[in-house]
Each structure stands twice: as C-alpha cells, then as structure tokens.
Design a protein around this nucleic acid. Structure first.
Lengths: 229, 229
DNA sequence: TGTACATCAGTGAACGCGCGTTCACTGATGTAC
DNA sequence: TGTACATCAGTGAACGCGCGTTCACTGATGTAC
C-alpha cells in the first residue's frame, strides 16, 4: 500500500526543503526551526532530509543566504534608474517592503544573532548586496558641501577607513560618516516597525506608516547631502 | 545524608532565579532558556522553581522587565545634569555602554521578538523609561529653527500624533519627526554594533568604536537641532 | 528484446537527550497553648 | 519549659513530548550487454 502523500508528492529537493523551512520560520522563529517538522510537512520521513541537507545548521545557512539574496535582488530592482535621490528612496522603500512582507525572514537576517551559530562566508557576499547599492548611490551623488560635523567626522575617519574603502571614490569623511549613520538608521527604523516598537508612537494605519517612512527617507537623503529632486 | 549543595545553598527566591536565568541567556539566548537548567544551576530540583515562578513565560517576563529597568536606570543616571546636548550625549553613551556590557539581555529587549510571546503591560512601563529621557531632552531644548524637511514633516504629522503627545509641549512637527528618527537611529546603531554588523565597515578596536559612536551622537544632536555646547 | 546489475531516493526503527509541568510526599521550622 | 500542630520550601518520580542524528534496509529506476 502506497500512501496518497507519496503519490502526490513532488520529488524532494534542497529547494523544496528550504521553501518549507521558510514557512516554518513564521510559526516558531529561527530557534524553533526543526528538521523533523520540515520533513513532516513534506510528507517524508525525517531521515530523508539528510540526503539533501547535512545538518540543521546547514539548513539555517541556506535560509539566511536565500534571504540576503532575495532582499538584495529586491533592493537592486527597487532603486530604479533615476537621480541618486530617487534611487535612494526606491532602495529604502524596497528594504521596508521586503521586510514587511517577510518579517520572519527579516528577523532571521537582522534580529538577534542565533546563539551558537556562526555565518559562513557564503552568506556574507549575499549580505553585502544592499550595502553595495547604498554605496553606489553615495558614490554617484558626487561632492558634498560642508554642513557641520566636520571635526567629528575627521576624528572618526580612521575608524571608518573600512567603510570608506567599501564606498570607494575617495569620499569626504563627513560623507562616509553620514553614509554609515544612515545605513544603520534605515535598518533601525525598519526593525522598529517590523518588531512593533513604533506601535505607541506612530499611527498604525498602513498609509500612516508609509507616510512616516517616506518622511524618514527624505530626511536621510538630506543628511546624506543628496541633491534634491 | 544531606548533599553539600543543600547546605551551602542560599535560600531560593525569585530574585535568585532571575539572576541565574540572566546568566543563562548568555549561552543559549531567550529561546533556549530552560527552567530545568536554571534549577540545576541553583542546585535545586526543577519543580522547586515553580513555587516562585508560575511558568517559563513568566520568567521571561521577569527578565524583560528587569532588563528595561536596568537600562532605564542606567540612561537616567547617564544623562547627568547639563545642557540638553550634554544630556543627550550622556544618555546615548549610557545606552551603548549598557548594551555592550549586557549584549544578551539587550538582544532579548531589542532583537527579534520571541515567537509566541506577548509582553504584558508590566514591561511596557519599564520600556518607556528611555524614550521618556529622550523626550524630556527634546522638550527642554526648546524651539527649533527650520532646517528643511518641513513639508515631509507636515505630511507625517498625523502619523506622528502619538509621538507628539508623548513628547509633549507642542513641538514643531519637524522636531517630532526628527526625534523619532533619531530614537530609531540610536537603537539601530547600537544594535548593529552589538550584533556585529559593523565588523566590515568600522574598525573593531574599542576606542575606534567609541570615537565613531561619539561622532554619530554629535550628528544626531545636530539633526535634532540641539544647541551646541 | 530481454536479462543482470548498480544506483540511490526514501523508509522505519532506534539512540539518547532535554524539555515543561504535575503531584503526592517529606521534613524542618515556627507558633499556640 | 515542653508538647502538639500547622505551615510551607523543597523532593523525587512521573507524564508525554519533540528533537537531531544514525543506520541497515527496500524497492523503483535506469543502464550495460
């Protein structure tokens, strides 16, 4: 007797396993992700999964890499092809939209690190896609007139040498500082929204949230010295 | 025969349980926090803990409340008693210092929400202590000359009504917007540092990190329009 | 065209583990008279 | 001062559970001759 499940089942594959695992993140978070539960959902005995995935941590790694790639692709597409300020706004909105659509995957990427888990190099390339988009925008925006904060930026220039190298093009220290600040601010703001920390300070209606975020984007663009329009 | 542990043991108490639980966060994170492991560490049988704590979730709640209170107290003390800009800097540095000293408790408070856990009201009062400090600083800093972004701030004013009410004193919309932006930016930046996301862009030496953070604080103070000095 | 064989995806049972929670209990401590 | 009793902190055994991982196996599929 062959069970119905077996007849209907798609052939197992790493991709199918990762897809189901992604759905499981929703209910239990990264720490509660279970190979057995994933196998159960696939209609397969738990040991079958081991033909495709060596270990629970490897599955986590696949999920993380897939997440960074999905976010990176969304942001690359979302920036469009206009002047720097428009590209910046598009990129920011793409980050937010992806995070709101995939809150649990976002939490996996940008929430607390999973204890005992160390990300292998495979994921760090994918993780750099969003910073690369932001860096290109800063690079393309060209020179920045002084707007204050120069002494502090000069003091922090040594600390920010890796960031300056990543952005490239020999940016002014204030610009590098402001770029790193804005980068952290974007993800801080999106994390606050996704994790519910704005619920007592920003109206919860979706369009109120969008309006607020757009205002943030505009201020960040000002802080970055992106030319208007 | 009475075991040595029993003789040496401090009397059990909720405080002792919470203290051990805090240490356990370090190794396993919030999701891996186990009543049995805590009991074991206290040299006590696991059911004994239930005389002090009704449930695992209650222990988590105690930890969260304790965390918010500890952070709130540190920030209230850290702001000192100077002009707004100095208080702001003191408060920001206190947040960062506390987070770096208690990274796992910080992750519990500001990382991904624990799946299936809903914070009871008891914790939300404690959680408001840091925002209250920041709000008071903004309030005390007084009026703000326009520096751009007014149309966006006006558009977002309705969305930011709860924040404006929390800050009080009838602040200019731009000021409210900038306050919320800076609030999220502070925690975004501290989270990035604690969670290791700056490791490829900011030099890792402690004083480089401190210099960078001070530069951030200064820029945020500028964005908030806090008078220099 | 037909047989023999290798491949290999998925099975099923088992391992040893730790978890949260319940419950009847013991035995020391402190109070009442 | 001495006995009887109530209190209650902590015990120990048990419940039912799900987990990651291993391992010998089955049986369908495809290839070689």
């Amino acid at each position: 007797v062959v069970s119905k499940r077996t007849e209907d089942r798609q052939p197992l594959s790493t991709a199918a396993i990762v897809a189901v695992a992604r759905r499981h993140l929703v209910d239990h978070g990264a720490a509660g992700l279970s190979l057995r539960a994933v196998a159960r959902d696939l209609g397969v005995v738990s040991s079958a999964v081991y033909r495709y995935v060596a270990t629970r941590d490897e599955l986590l790694t696949l999920l993380i890499a897939e997440g960074y790639d999905a976010l990176g692709a969304a942001v690359e597409a979302g920036q469009g092809e206009g002047p720097p300020r428009a590209r910046f706004a598009g990129a920011c909105r793409a980050i937010r939209a992806w995070a709101l659509k995939n809150p649990h995957e976002y939490a996996l990427l940008f929430g607390s690190p999973v204890p005992g888990y160390r990300a292998p190099e495979a994921t760090t390339n994918a993780a750099a896609r969003v910073p690369a988009v932001l860096a290109a925008i800063v690079r393309d925006a060209g020179g920045r007139e002084g707007k204050g904060g120069e002494p502090q930026a000069a003091a922090a220039a040594a600390a920010l040498a890796p960031a300056a190298a990543f952005i490239g093009g020999g940016q002014h220290p204030t610009r590098v500082l402001e770029a790193v600040i804005v980068w952290a601010a974007i993800f801080g703001t999106v994390s606050f929204e996704v994790f519910g920390r704005f619920d007592d300070s920003v109206a919860t209606a979706p369009d109120a949230r969008a309006t607020f975020f757009d205002a943030c984007v505009d201020r960040w663009a000002d802080h970055l010295g992106l030319p208007p329009g």
